[in-house]
Design a protein around this nucleic acid. Structure first.
Lengths: 123, 123
DNA sequence: TTTTTAGTTAGCTTGCTGGCTAACAGTTAT
DNA sequence: ATAACTGTTAGCCAGCAAGCTAACTAAAAA
């Protein structure tokens, strides 16, 4: 159970950085080598490598080294992890909204009946 | 444009911590005071307050102080921000998958025709 | 008006993040 | 065999994150 938490920690954490989101976007379109990933970023290779590591660590990216080239690819299951979480939250929230709508309707009624008293309080 | 990035940074970052996700989940069900939020966490108040600050900063939570009580509520628009991002990625990814399916089909064909040559290479 | 409650501010630690450079390693090309 | 290319490791730095305690403020309750 703590495991699941940790997975979410890592995926959300990985996506909390613009560079890493850009890498993910890039990998949505096609696999790419580390060098290819680095090009658009104007950043030293080792720095970019760290990002790739973090992405791998989160499960968002997998990579394989062939010869001297490491090819990276997206692992969409990790994205689904957070979609699942989001959906769960939204469901709870929406259930609550349903209850709330009823409640608000009641409040509005009450407001109207309070409006009479309010008039007498006008400074 | 950098603004949008920053917003995503903050929202993803806010959700990359289990405590904060728990707070969000809690607030999905109902508004709550800082003290109420703190109870289940066995954590000093100032520490929890930091989390609340971070959540506010990301736009996920809004709060208002009435008397000595600060009441916190979820701001679901921020969650939608990342749903939008996720959806965008998934669309790109799926478009790519469509292209890829065709490609894979071609590869499989090629594999079969290569199988003949492969036999002669068996050490 | 004193006491309790609820939150806040300040200040400290520990450890991770995100960036760098410099040096090294392994692979491919000449 | 050397040179060029592609990553990788090591080590450094600045700054933020997440936790703590202690001391303070403001509102409610007694």
């Amino acid at each position: 159970m703590a495991n699941q938490s940790t997975q979410l920690d890592h995926v959300f954490g990985a996506l909390s950085d613009a560079t890493r989101r850009a890498i993910v976007m890039r990998l949505c379109e096609s696999e790419a080598s580390v060098g290819e990933l680095a090009k658009p970023f104007d950043m030293a290779l080792p720095s970019l490598m760290k990002h790739v590591r973090i992405l791998e660590n989160s499960g968002l990216v997998v990579s394989e080294k062939t010869g001297r080239v490491r090819t990276c690819a997206l692992q969409t299951e990790a994205l689904e992890t957070i979609e699942v979480w989001l959906t769960a939250q939204r469901e709870i929230w929406e259930q609550r909204l349903d209850r709330l709508e009823i409640h608000v309707a009641k409040l509005k009624k009450r407001e109207k009946s309070n409006a009479h008293k309010a008039k007498s309080k006008s400074k």
